[in-house]
Simulated scan of single mutants.
Amino acid sequence: MNQVLVLNSGSSSIKYQLIDMDDRTRLAVGIIERIGEASGSVADHAAGMEVVLAELEGKLDRAQLAAVGHRVVHGGDRFRGPTLVDDEVCDTISKLIPLAPLHNPANLTLIEAARAAFPDTPQVAVFDTAFHQTLPEHAYTYAVPQSWREDLGVRRYGFHGTSHQYVSRRAAAMLGRRPEEVNMIVLHLGNGASVCAIREGKSIDTSMGMTPLEGLIMGTRSGDLDPAVSAYIARQTGRTAEEIDLTLNKESGLLALAGSNDLRDIDAAAAKGNEPARLALDAYCYRIRKYIGAYLAALGRVDALAFTAGVGENSATVRAGALAGLDHLGIAVSPKRNAQHSKEERYISPYWAETAVLVVPTDEEIEIADQALEVLGRAG
């Protein structure tokens, strides 16, 4: 058995890949979208699993399937690594739903559907939050009442952990060093975005918090915000907590500033002199630069910065803007290297820079597959 089926479920989607782990080739890749939406034809993630199975017909040999790997958004403080799924694990994921009400129910439904579809195949859950369980107490603790922290689980958890872990390992390999020898900052910049400070292969701080709302300006999320803003809006407008939460998650960020959450459109509009687009781009890059400065201080020594995900891998404008003015700290991009578009891992820093600046395409699916086999005691 040498194949792993990776199921990466969002709140309204399922991305899947069937990977041959002998040569790490993709035997099947697909996505089911608009799950549970009025405009879609798939009622829920259980029905989505049926669609996945139909699309895998003729491509999947069950006798060769070593494991099914699942992405689960929130593991709270209960899961520190990939975990073999059983009834107790499913029960714990269910109890964590209040921390991720949009994603964990979808993740759990898909896990249960996959267990039914592949009753004799090990199922492994890989948690977005697990990589950040190495945060020191002073980094994950919020200054809020003890009852909130202890009874309600209010603390920093962090997300995108699977991507940060994969990219940090690949970046270390590019430097010709082991992850335990390297300090780095990984910038996962997509529609959702987060920064992670990694010391000797372990996450010590990250920009997302108890939820994915905190931190950087994102496609539709506000990122860092004075907590009193929500109470102020509620008093002034009569809007409910749920309505305000929806606005901050779905109607804010770049969308609110520029009218679009697509950096390509914003970059093009800014180049033509569109003022809202220019402001959005400036604010986006400035927020990233602030976090880089904070994590430089937290780490003390930084060997590399790695850009990844859709924006990080493809936007030369954002990469240059995020690092503007950091030359005196030994951090810079080479205009020529930065402008070259490629899907390969690459250096974009000039020869004189003390800190390597890298672009590392993320691969969460292969990381999930590797971790699934790790749980089973096999090397991918």
Rank of each mutant, 00 (worst) to 15 (best):
residue 140 Y to L: 09
residue 261 N to T: 01
residue 204 I to E: 10
residue 241 A to F: 12
residue 61 D to S: 06
residue 229 V to Y: 10
residue 279 L to E: 11
residue 203 S to E: 10
residue 129 T to R: 04
residue 193 A to Y: 07
residue 183 N to Y: 00
residue 197 A to E: 06
residue 88 E to N: 11
residue 328 H to K: 10
residue 80 R to E: 14
residue 159 F to K: 00
residue 237 T to A: 03
residue 342 S to N: 03
residue 188 H to C: 08
residue 364 E to Y: 06
residue 240 T to R: 02
residue 342 S to F: 07
residue 374 E to F: 03
residue 202 K to C: 13
residue 250 K to W: 05
residue 156 R to E: 05
residue 300 G to F: 12
residue 110 L to W: 03
residue 262 D to K: 01
residue 322 A to V: 07
residue 332 A to C: 10
residue 113 A to P: 14
residue 311 V to K: 13
residue 64 Q to G: 00
residue 280 A to L: 10
residue 302 V to I: 08
residue 315 S to Q: 07
residue 377 G to N: 04
residue 127 F to T: 01
residue 58 G to D: 06
residue 45 H to N: 04
residue 128 D to I: 03
residue 380 G to C: 08
residue 316 A to S: 13
residue 221 R to N: 03
residue 340 Q to L: 14
residue 123 Q to N: 05
residue 78 R to A: 14
residue 288 I to H: 11
residue 228 A to C: 14
residue 154 V to F: 12
residue 47 A to I: 01
residue 95 K to S: 15
residue 311 V to R: 10
residue 58 G to C: 02
residue 217 I to E: 01
residue 219 G to A: 07
residue 298 A to R: 04
residue 321 G to S: 07
residue 182 V to G: 00
residue 281 L to R: 13
residue 85 V to L: 03
residue 201 G to S: 09
residue 250 K to H: 10
residue 362 T to C: 07
residue 300 G to K: 09
residue 32 I to S: 08
residue 170 R to Q: 15
residue 33 E to Q: 14
residue 305 L to A: 10
residue 199 R to E: 15
residue 28 A to Y: 00
residue 156 R to D: 04
residue 239 R to T: 02
residue 97 I to K: 13
residue 17 Q to M: 06
residue 17 Q to G: 05
residue 288 I to L: 04
residue 289 R to T: 07
residue 180 E to G: 05
residue 8 N to C: 10
residue 112 E to H: 01
residue 219 G to N: 02
residue 35 I to C: 11
residue 12 S to E: 12
residue 143 A to W: 08
residue 380 G to N: 04
residue 280 A to T: 10
residue 325 G to R: 08
residue 324 A to C: 10
residue 374 E to H: 12
residue 238 G to F: 12
residue 9 S to W: 03
residue 371 Q to R: 15
residue 262 D to E: 02
residue 174 M to D: 02
residue 301 R to V: 15
residue 276 P to K: 05
residue 340 Q to G: 01
residue 250 K to P: 08
residue 38 A to K: 15
residue 148 W to T: 05
residue 215 G to V: 09
residue 132 H to E: 09
residue 296 L to D: 05
residue 93 I to T: 02
residue 177 R to Q: 11
residue 285 C to K: 12
residue 335 P to T: 02
residue 60 L to S: 03
residue 262 D to C: 00
residue 228 A to F: 14
residue 201 G to D: 09
residue 350 P to E: 04
residue 39 S to P: 11
residue 16 Y to R: 05
residue 367 E to N: 00
residue 178 R to T: 12
residue 155 R to K: 13
residue 272 K to G: 11
residue 95 K to I: 00
residue 237 T to Q: 01
residue 321 G to K: 00
residue 219 G to C: 05
residue 14 I to T: 09
residue 78 R to Q: 14
residue 222 S to Q: 05
residue 79 F to K: 03
residue 272 K to N: 13
residue 256 A to M: 07
residue 214 E to S: 15
residue 168 S to D: 08
residue 61 D to L: 00
residue 186 V to K: 01
residue 366 I to H: 05
residue 264 R to I: 06
residue 100 A to N: 05
residue 26 R to K: 13
residue 293 G to H: 08
residue 62 R to N: 13
residue 238 G to T: 07
residue 216 L to Q: 09
residue 118 F to K: 03
residue 286 Y to C: 09
residue 296 L to C: 13
residue 60 L to G: 02
residue 288 I to E: 01
residue 187 L to A: 15
residue 290 K to A: 09
residue 280 A to E: 09
residue 87 D to Q: 12
residue 11 S to C: 08
residue 267 D to K: 12
